[in-house]
Design a protein around this nucleic acid. Sequence first.
DNA 1: GGCCCTCTTTAGGGCCTT
Length: 343
Amino acid sequence: MKTIVMCFSLLQFPRCRIHSLANSWWESFHKLGRRSGSSSSFRVLCSNNYEPEGGSSRRWTRVTRRTINTKTGGSNESSIRNTSVRHEIIPELSSESNSKKIETTKVQRCRKIGIRSKIIAESTSTKISTYEVESTEIESDQYYIDLAKLATIICFDIETTGFAREKDRIIEIACQDLRGGENSTFQTLVNPQRDVPNEQIHGISTRMVNRYDVPRMKDLIPIFLQYVRSRQIPGGVVVLVSHNGRTFDVPFLKKEFSRCSYEIPSDWLFADTLPLARAVMKSKGSKVPSKISLQALREHYGIPLIGPAHRALSDVHSLALVLQRLTYDLKLPVSGLIQGSFK
DNA sequence: GGCCCTCTTTAGGGCCTT
């Protein structure tokens, strides 16, 4: 597996884009906080800044001559520096010893940076009662607080050839790490090796994706895994957030992984903004409106559309800001988001 | 498929995702 991951270089794929939306989420969050005059929500979704072994200068071994047209991009953030930290993922974090291991990992291997560290160091035990979490009493609040300190929050979205994961295929994937910084976002078209019947929805045509230089899913998964791993805090978990992900994006992604003989890494968690949106509506004392689509939420919060609607990266940008507003409204900390996550 | 609402719970329709 590791060998496969190292077989691809993002720089090799100009159509696979890693953008620099960097700190837009943080900037917006701080603006929101200034407007509200409240500091409690600033504990939500914060994280420290880390970079994997080798940093941006690392080199991946090229073992294929297949030219795949992808794009990368991004901006440097002053707080990001190279580090010799190694990836040592803890697969299961369910015991007290593992909780202690997290704490040890945090102290020994991680660097805290600026205000974000101060934010995350605060207690994050506040939870909103209307957010129905799936967790049982197996894990303590402290466990989730510890886990939150090493969590990477990544919003993601997919475009597909249809709704049926059994017969349809992913044709575009986009992600945005809310921590921002260099290589914080990732976007690529995916070659489904079939016609795209719903171009009218997202504007992605058969001609755009059925190309030799657009990666197939089996080509992309190792790159995608490497991207996520590059954003992951050593010893921490990744929380992949999407809208209606529980019933669409995540099962679709899992199906594609399975089809290509891959498994979703055990330290990936998934969160869905749809139940968060319902919880916000309930908390305001109103019945859950019938329209709680991502577009409806974006309009509700006055978030401008960046780029064409129903393209993965545009929706990810919207989702990142919607998530920020939802967690703010719910006063939901990272630990609460993790408690409500699923695998 | 899961969730929510209502003309409901022994059910059905609508919404979310493309």
